[in-house]
Design a protein around this nucleic acid. Structure first.
Lengths: 218, 218
DNA sequence: TGTACATCAGTGAACGCGCGTTCACTGATGTAC
DNA sequence: TGTACATCAGTGAACGCGCGTTCACTGATGTAC
């Protein structure tokens, strides 16, 4: 309520502009970058425009980031953190059934891509390497770990002799999920008559049946 | 052998420069674009540099294309033609076994992505819509049709009541193939301990088993 | 509480650059007679 | 076969633009006393 109160400024990072000093420019730039990426793809994003969107001179960006790529990398890192959290949460929620946990994780994947397209693009389509910084690599590995853990739990229900390694198992699922997102959950023109969610759900279902994890339940 | 012979000029499109006139600039520009895209991704490609690579002034490009996007679109179109041909060929070769044909088609997919990375990127990662021109849309549809045809042939071996529609079936396979290419067959840093070929082959194998199309053959 | 001063986080002007695109032009090619 | 001419496919200079980046600067903030 107090227009210049300290409280509201802390609660509203990146929004309150108190004259000369921005208050939370670092995060505001990330958010500007994300909406630009959502709107125009990783190509359409420029440092200058991100600065302008955040209401600031391009030069100000260099107080917080080393340059354009560094900004995208930080956006990707935050994306991986959110991504890992979401999948972890979904996985926990499906417990104690390993199958329910796994399927919830798959759904969480697509939900993330839908809800955070800017992050998703920064993570997987911006062309920046996951090994660019240790922080980024760590965040990416955590996400990968969640998926692998879910796969491992589930694969305990497969007889050992016909059980693929968990890392292969999870790579398959990741690949199919990513493929569905890229091919059918974007406006590239390549449409399918089915909603991406259904496509992914049925695809994973058939795959799991192939592993003997799901009975003939159609 | 004759340095200026007509024969050799026709055989070597885009290479022979006979002074003022290039001879086959239109195709030479496509090839320049492809190698630039391979080297630096769709972002790193500029019209000017493509012209320079082809040994020509940027302005000359406008004799053959409307602009940068138009050039990429033509590269993508040619990619879809090659892609469809390769998959068609693989599919035919696997006949009369529908299963062998289908698996050969899957392998052809990955082989194409490996052998023609520039085309693949132009087709799926450049951000241009498949509906940009009727020619591009037609080429893309032909490719899609080959995959769907292979899926349809194969799905005849599934009892009708548990048979998914062929378009869904082929979308699943396409998604997994594309996901493997994007996540594991590129140098994005996200590596898996398995070669992409194996990853895709086992993935498709498990999926097909889930459809009851492949016996327990491990 | 008030003042002096260090530090922080912005400004805005300037830079060189390469881009896409246009334009009038010109050398090479092909064709009609 | 030779010549005149139309057309084609390039040149190269010029343009305005927005980009990333640097720099000296300055207003705002925080702190010591």
């Amino acid at each position: 309520m107090h227009p210049g109160g300290k409280q509201s400024e802390k609660d509203d990072p990146g929004m309150s502009k108190r004259g000369y000093h921005h208050g939370n420019l670092k995060q505001a730039l990330i958010e500007a970058a994300l909406s630009l990426i959502e709107a125009k793809g990783p190509t359409g994003f420029t440092l200058s425009e991100a600065a302008k969107t955040a209401g600031v001179t391009p030069a100000a960006v260099y107080r917080h980031y080393q340059g354009r790529e560094d900004l995208i990398a930080e956006a990707a890192r935050q994306g991986f953190e959110i991504f890992a959290d979401l999948m972890q949460f979904a996985c926990d929620k499906g417990q104690p059934s390993a199958l329910a946990a796994f399927e919830a994780t798959g759904r969480a994947y697509l939900a993330f891509a839908r809800k955070h397209p800017g992050h998703y693009i920064a993570m997987f389509e911006s062309g920046i390497s996951v090994n660019r910084t240790p922080e980024l690599a760590m965040a990416a590995n955590r996400a990968k770990g969640v998926l692998e853990k879910a796969a491992e739990d589930l694969s305990r229900h497969i007889p050992p002799e016909k059980r693929p390694p968990a890392s292969m198992f999870s790579a398959h699922i990741w690949a199919m999920s990513h493929g569905v997102v890229e091919l059918f959950a974007r406006n590239t023109g390549a449409t399918s008559p089915y909603p991406p969610e259904d496509l992914l759900e049925t695809g994973i279902g058939i795959y799991l049946r192939g592993l003997g994890l799901v009975p003939q339940d159609d």
